[in-house]
Design a protein around this nucleic acid. Sequence first.
DNA 1: TCTGGGGTCCTAGGACCC
DNA 2: TCTGGGGTCCTAGGACCC
Length: 423
Amino acid sequence: MIALVDCNNFYVSCERVFQPSLEGKPVGILSNNDGCIIARSEEIKKLGVAMGTPYFKIPDLIKQHNIKILSSNYALYGDMSRRVMQVLGRFTPTMEVYSIDECFLDLSGFSQDLTTYSNTIAKTVKQGTGIPVSIGIAPTKTLAKLANKLAKKGIAGNGSVLVWNTLAEPDKLLATLPVKELWGISSGLGKRLNRIRIDNVLALKQANIQLIRKQFGVVLERMVRELNEIPCIPLEMIAPKRKQILTSRSFGTRLSTLPELRAAVSVFATRSAEKLRSQNLCTQTLCVFIHTSPFALDKPSYNNAITISLDQPTQDTGLLIRTALAGLERIYRPGYEYQRAGILLPDLMPNGMQQLSLFQDDSNDNPKSERLMTVLDAINHAHGRHSIRYASQGLSARWQMRQQLKSPAYTTRWECLPIVTIN
DNA sequence: TCTGGGGTCCTAGGACCC
DNA sequence: TCTGGGGTCCTAGGACCC
């Protein structure tokens, strides 16, 4: 049996742990750059605010209902997530951290009553971290996801826990669920399924497996089998190695000039190199891209990207910056208002295993670069990110993301530690 | 004025091998 | 009249996830 533990309204719950006054009130969390609402409390959902609603489109609603809006605080969410996972780790040796707010636990072979056990898990997480969770338990991941959703919505189970096999008539329930509710079915697949008269989960479960394979491919075939309690998606206990690293941002204000874009791209390249080193990886390839806004239909649009192969794999910030800027020069066109840029490293490998270049005569530089990067990382770790930097990163913050409503990094910066006063 | 960021997997088609 | 059979690797694009 597999349990899916999912934190309820995770980002909102993290904020509420440190601002209990937000409890019971409508709360929304914004995407980076304070763009859209990407996490919602139950109260704001009830007011009809959909996932992904642009923030600037609902000022009246916010005022009228006194909705509390916050910028994303990923330092906080990341740390709270780590704590939740740590508590969950006490309950089973085999678990897969699936996302920042979800975790699969392998409960097969447990002799206890799973409902009781799961209630204990939920209670312990709440007590240890302040975060409320819902738990769905079933023979496959797909069904565990579904059970979790039903528990959360209060359709079945005891409010926060649902063990699939305790349902008297699961098929009756499946028949009431639209196929789009399933993990792995988005609107695209959902519409195609509806066209062949598969509109609820039961219909999909009973669909002809050969036909599904032929028309929709192996992904949906696996899903149908999982609905029939045949596990096809294994638990991944060891996180697989990263396959790519992406660093990109929308700008706080549109950028038109090359110098400003150069500064932004330098910062993204620097961040990418830091990510490489922190995961002990290096890259053989760098891709740099720039976009105008897809929403500015009245203005000329331009999207371009360039992929550059390096002579040999590297994790050196200076080399990645030089490469990225050379790429930028080639794709930059004047006369556009750029909204976003980024660096993609699509071809990663473990550091120390790279194939050296046959023709490079300065390969002795490698130890030097390594020492420099170690010092750089140590200084920036001790004194804060960007304490020392490459000149090309510049000093202007004009393009930095907007994050005007961000709460303090309560758990990751000493200056932000909450202070408790006892009267 | 204002619309996120970071990932994975699958498939089809092209290029190549013997 | 008539021109094989069986592979691998890479890439771009689409679909999906949180």
